[in-house]
Design a protein around this nucleic acid. Sequence first.
DNA 1: AAGCACAACAACCGCGGGCGC
DNA 2: TGCGCCCGCGGTTGTTGTGCT
Length: 268
Amino acid sequence: MGRAPCCSKVGLYRGPWTTKEDTLLINYIQAHGEGHWRSLPKKAGLLRCGKSCRLRWLNYLRPDIKRGNITPDEDDLIIRLHSLLGNRWSLIAGRLPGRTDNEIKNYWNSHLSKRLMKNSTAGNKSQCMGGSAGKRSGNKRKQKEDSDGISSRNGEAAAKIKIYLPKAVKACPSSGTKYLSNIQSMIGSSPRNVEVVDHTMSGLKAANNGGQGWGSNNEELDGLVCDLDSSYPIPLQNDIMLDDIFGEFQQLLKEDGIMDSFVDSLLA
DNA sequence: AAGCACAACAACCGCGGGCGC
DNA sequence: TGCGCCCGCGGTTGTTGTGCT
């Protein structure tokens, strides 16, 4: 697949935007509309790549952007939506008028993930897996350790193979079963050392769990462990049929009218 | 006042899907 | 049907601001 050359092109500016550049971009878009990002910089007289222009417009210059603090309502909604959708920031942003995916992502990484982590450590520490980006300086080593599988977890747990199911895609009732079936066949006859990490269903389950979805109520999830952040480990047990889990997920959707209409709206 | 650590947010990067040719 | 381009997304990094010692 061909890759569009990007900002690395010699001669294009990078880094923070100046007010002059902003003005040029705003004027051009007001005159010609959004889109055609690739050719836009040249036409607008900007020495930026199209990606950079698009990002600047979408995240900062757009007139309908709502600046300022995230309200408690928005805060709560983000948490619920994240528990439902995972790190689908654009979908979450679509439910928060005036907020951008980048803003929500940053807010999550800098505020909510920490808060929820704190809440959870007060509750069930052992289920936490560490999560999204976090801060660079302190977390790089940790991320490295995690990715190398050399974190402090010992023995059997550390040796476990982890399979990450796809993150929540646009809600398609059949996709869950399909993925789970695939995983089941991948796992085959030796599921003992395999842990399926689901981004979708346990999140939904959590979202329906009294509308809280996070924190100390996780233990109520009938053995399914809801993780704090973007991944939700589900210890695969021989007596838990994955299709049953998916059926339960569908049942939950039916029981909650809000959830139902929400998913419908995503499908639309 | 200076230096440091951390927080917040803007911006970049690379990947993958959609679509036209 | 395959290829290449464009766009959007999510993860990551860079920069600036702020509080603490």
